[in-house]
């Protein structure tokens, strides 16, 4: 009985995902590309990096990367606390 409920939920979610993907804009032609075109045009003279993804990660969105490394660091601190933080 419970298995039937879960399978029904899975089927409903499959329909939802199919509807969502059918209503998303078509593949390989994004609509608004103004920000990314600005990055591609100006990344070399503003950040001095050939790799535009690196210039976005480490210069335009450096605070985002700071939060990302904070997440990784706090996850490692959590594992550290779980395993050997409880010594008496």
């Amino acid at each position: 009985m419970e298995v039937k409920i879960r399978a029904g939920a899975l089927v409903v979610l499959f329909g939802f995902l199919l509807l969502a993907v059918a209503s998303v804009r078509p593949f390989a032609s994004p609509e608004s590309t103004a920000m990314d075109d600005y990055f591609i045009q100006n990344a070399q003279e503003e950040t001095g990096s050939n790799n535009v993804v690196t210039s976005v990660v480490f210069d335009y969105r450096a605070l985002d990367t700071l939060g990302e490394t904070t997440v990784l660091f706090s996850a490692v601190c959590g594992i550290f606390t779980i395993f050997i933080g409880r010594k008496k």
């Binding site: 490394t69 990784l72 660091f73 996850a75 490692v76 594992i79 550290f80 395993f83």
Partner: peptide
């Protein structure tokens, strides 16, 4: 350096 230390420590601890 941060990723090396973090992932190595996680792997060793796990």
């Amino acid at each position: 350096l941060e990723v090396v230390m973090g992932i190595s420590l996680a792997v060793i601890l796990l």
